[in-house]
Amino acid sequence: MELREFFEHLSGARRVYGEPYEKDGVTVIPAVSVTAGGGFGHGERHGPEHGKENGGSGGGGGAIARPAGAYVIKDGQVRWEPALDVNRIVLGGQLLLGLALILIARHLRRRR
């Protein structure tokens, strides 16, 4: 895959919306939330104490895609059905529980 094709693949609606499919008169168009990032670097170090030129370069990137939901088309009506991210719900519950335990412990210490 050429670099141009790679960036075309990462951009646009093809990256966010899946292929529509139909069953029993209902059309479903899945959608995802995509977050991507990248970076590049370059460095050089010169000086007589080094005896030779030093240099460096690097780069990296990544993307995360999570289900967002789907558009459901039935009888000419379109509705949005959000995806349920159970992992995010569990993590949020754990964070709230941890915060509650910290607050309870602080409250009990002050009462002594």
Rank of each mutant, 00 (worst) to 15 (best):
H46G: 06
M1H: 12
H42F: 15
K74M: 05
L99K: 15
F7E: 00
N87Y: 11
L108R: 15
G93F: 10
E81A: 07
E22W: 10
E44H: 09
G43A: 10
E49S: 13
L103V: 05
I102M: 10
G38C: 02
G76N: 01
G92L: 09
Y21P: 04
P82M: 00
G76V: 04
E5H: 14
H50G: 08
Y21R: 05
G43H: 07
E8D: 11
G55K: 02
G51L: 02
L3C: 08
G47L: 05
G93I: 01
L97W: 07
I89R: 07
E44D: 10
V90L: 15
H46W: 00
H9E: 15
G55E: 02
N87T: 11
V28D: 00
R112M: 08
S33T: 13
G98N: 11
T35D: 14
G41F: 12
R112V: 04
W80C: 02
L84I: 06
G69F: 08
N87C: 07
L97G: 06
V72H: 01
A70C: 08
R14N: 14
V34N: 00
E8K: 11
P67Q: 05
R106F: 15
N87H: 12
G98R: 03
V78C: 05
Y71R: 03
G38Y: 08
I29F: 12
A68R: 09
H107F: 15
I102P: 01
A63Q: 11
L84R: 13
V32R: 06
G39P: 03
G12D: 07
A36S: 15
P67V: 00
V32Y: 08
L99C: 14
V26D: 01
R4P: 07
V32A: 06
P20T: 01
M1W: 08
V72T: 00
E81Q: 10
H107T: 09
A70I: 02
R15Y: 00
G56M: 00
P82K: 02
K74V: 03
V16W: 04
G69Q: 01
H107M: 14
S57V: 05
R109M: 11
L3E: 14
G58T: 01
